[in-house]
C-alpha cells in the first residue's frame, strides 16, 4: 500500500488527537518515504504525535537520519525530539548532534536521551580508523557529562559509558577502558555521587565491564 494517503492524513489532521492517530498510523508503515513527514511532525508542538513520530523514525533507521539532521537548529522543540530519534537509531552521522545535546542542551530529558544514544552507536560497520575517532569523541563527551547537575543525566551517562565500553570491546588495560571504569567508580561512590540509584547503576555497569 502506498504511504501517500497516510501522509495526507497527517497533513490534513484537524485536531490534536487526530494528528496523534494519523502519525501513529504513518509511523507503523515503517516506510522510508514517511520520514520527511514524521520529521515535520516533531515541530508541531504535540507531544503525543511527536512520541509516535520518534518511534516511527527509529523504526525507519538510517534512511531517516539525513532528514533529522536537516532540521533548523532554531526550532528547539523539534530538535529535542530529533535527539531522541537519533539516539534510538544509533547512526554515527548523529554523533555531533548527540554530543552537542549532551553537553549544552537546557532540557535534562534531552541530555538524558543523548547520553544513552552515545552508548548505543552502531560501530561495527565502521573502518577501524573512523571507529576509533567516533569512540573517542563519544567517550570524551560522556566523561565530561559525569558532572551534570541532574541525577537522571548522570544515570544515563552510566548507561552510556557501559554501552560504549561493551560495544567498543576495549581490552582491559586499554586507556579508554580504564577511563570509563574510573568515571563509573566515581559515579558509584557515595563520597562523590549523592543519588543512590545512580550509584547502583554505575556499580552494575562496573560489574559488567570488569567480570
Amino acid at each position: 500500500m502506498s504511504v501517500q494517503p497516510l501522509i495526507s492524513a497527517v497533513q490534513d489532521a484537524s485536531s490534536a488527537l487526530e494528528l496523534v492517530r494519523a502519525t501513529a498510523a504513518l509511523a507503523a508503515s515503517g516506510s522510508a518515504a514517511a520520514a520527511p513527514t514524521l520529521v515535520e511532525v516533531l515541530g508541531f508542538n504535540n507531544p503525543g504525535a511527536a512520541v509516535a513520530a520518534v518511534d516511527g523514525l527509529i523504526a525507519i533507521g538510517s534512511p531517516a537520519v539525513d532528514h533529522l539532521l536537516q532540521l533548523d537548529p532554531r526550532n528547539y522543540g523539534a530538535r529535542a525530539w530529533a535527539v531522541r530519534a537519533l539516539a534510538g537509531i544509533g547512526d554515527v552521522r548523529g554523533l555531533d548532534l548527540l554530543v552537542e545535546a549532551l553537553l549544552t542542551d537546557v532540557g535534562p530529558s534531552v541530555r538524558r536521551a543523548a547520553a544513552k544514544g552515545l552508548g548505543a552507536l552502531a560501530l561495527d560497520a565502521l573502518a577501524s580508523g573512523e571507529r576509533n575517532t567516533v569512540q573517542q569523541h563519544a567517550l570524551t563527551a560522556l566523561l565530561e557529562a559525569t558532572s551534570d547537575g541532574e541525577w537522571v543525566v548522570r544515570y544515563a551517562v552510566a548507561v552510556g559509558l557501559e554501552g560504549l565500553a561493551l560495544g567498543s570491546r576495549w581490552p582491559t588495560g586499554h586507556s579508554s577502558h580504564s577511563s570509563s571504569c574510573t568515571a563509573l567508580c566515581r559515579l558509584s561512590d557515595a563520597a562523590t555521587e549523592e543519588a543512590t540509584v545512580v550509584r547502583l547503576r554505575a556499580a552494575l555497569a562496573l560489574q559488567r565491564l570488569q567480570p
Binding site: P108, S109, A195, T196, V197, L200
Partner: peptide, 15 residues
C-alpha cells in the same frame, strides 16, 4: 505520561 516522571517513580521504587 512523560518518561521523566516514570523515571522518578522507578527511582523511588529502587530507593
Amino acid at each position: 505520561a512523560e518518561n521523566s516522571l516514570k523515571l522518578i517513580a522507578l527511582r523511588g521504587l529502587v530507593e
